[in-house]
Write a protein that binds this DNA or RNA. Structure first.
Lengths: 201, 201
DNA sequence: TTTTAAAATGAACACGCTGTTGATTACGAG
DNA sequence: CTCGTAATCAACAGCGTGTTCATTTTAAAA
């Protein structure tokens, strides 16, 4: 691949991320991007058909990483791993997933942030649910989601709990390190809202 | 107020909600709205300065209802009320809040839906946190959010748990009745993710 | 180094949506 | 019935879009 292409696409990505930190995706024009990236507007269209293709490109880039890991390297992911210094075990899946996000933090930040794409979050949630379903089937045989509340409500609560942790992480001014987040995810598995509030009823 | 104004604004609202069911807010043009509402494009601008003012108007309408209730009628809201047929008690706050939403279901549906406004959800979350904080202070004196995970993560988890229930409700093809939702909200106070999955570790 | 193919530029185009204007018509409350 | 408010219609400049074509720049191959 031509080196110039790499440069240009990097400039576009940097400009795109910078703009998404300040305004909503739909309010960003191709002109905005190319001005900030110091390239000609026409050049943009040599790389992407429109700004939606740009968004898709980044989203798929991130999704593919996770998707690949979930479908290929899934053996042993739900078993406990080495003891951490604070005495908490961590699943490899959790560690890996948090690691993926940490690797491209700025991109995850804007795509899951206030100016991001709600549909991206939805896609990810579906993937997560599938992965957890599969993981549970493999490790323990007889899991049945509680009948105490409707099953789809239970699933939504579980998945969006994990997303809440990730999104809180991404919104922090001075973000925690990945290990701390993995730790939080492992701990919250056992915490109900009342536990979180510190209420002992 | 002129009757014609009421008609026109009702037509605008109906068109706006209908459009938000099919495409993202930012992709909706004033022309779209006025065409669907069978009014002249110029007429729209006699009522709202732009489509953002329209969005604000509806959001504030909903927020004010809840805000008013939280700040004025808050006495006794966190005490248990009459026993329901299935043996579950419900807080009046929960009942009232779910009731508010049920009253203008279609509007809540689109504003908190996939094509809605993430900032609206954020505003509501802040209000909810404030209300819960106040409520806890009043009813029980010595609540301290768990130190097991960082406090802001705990709060985010609690609040977005409640929002998850509401949003799941709003997305259902054949939505549950309000009582069922209030019931779910009361029950999930005690349920951790592992409880929800039916795992007994 | 020179050649050559790919990549980026700059200017122009029609199109669609915006928000505003001013003149005109429709209509409902009194 | 009448008067004032509300809605309509046509026109306006401004801006972003996506596409074009000729031109210039640039990196890699000869």
């Amino acid at each position: 691949m031509h080196q110039k292409v790499v440069e240009t696409e990097a400039a576009i990505q940097a400009a795109f991320i910078a703009l998404l930190q300040t305004k909503a995706f739909e309010k960003i024009s191709v002109s905005d991007i190319t001005k900030l990236a110091h390239i000609n507007r026409g050049t943009f269209y040599l790389h992407y058909v429109d700004k939606y293709a740009l968004l898709d490109h980044y989203e798929n880039h991130l999704i593919d990483q996770i998707q690949d890991y979930f479908t290929n390297d899934f053996e042993g992911t739900m078993t406990y791993q080495s003891v951490k210094e604070n005495g908490v075990y961590t699943y490899p899946v959790v560690q890996k997933t948090v690691g993926f996000i940490h690797q491209e933090f700025a991109l995850w930040q804007v795509l899951l942030g206030l100016n991001g794409d709600p549909r991206f979050e939805l896609k990810l949630k579906r993937i997560m649910k599938q992965a957890i379903s599969n993981g549970l089937d493999r490790v323990k045989g007889d899991i049945s989601v509680t009948r105490c509340i409707p099953e789809d409500y239970a699933w939504e609560l579980i998945i969006s709990g994990m997303f809440t942790i990730i999104k809180t992480w991404l919104r922090e001014d001075d973000p925690q390190n990945p290990e701390a987040i993995a730790d939080i995810m492992m701990k919250t598995r056992f915490l109900s809202p009342y536990d979180l509030l510190g209420i002992k009823d």
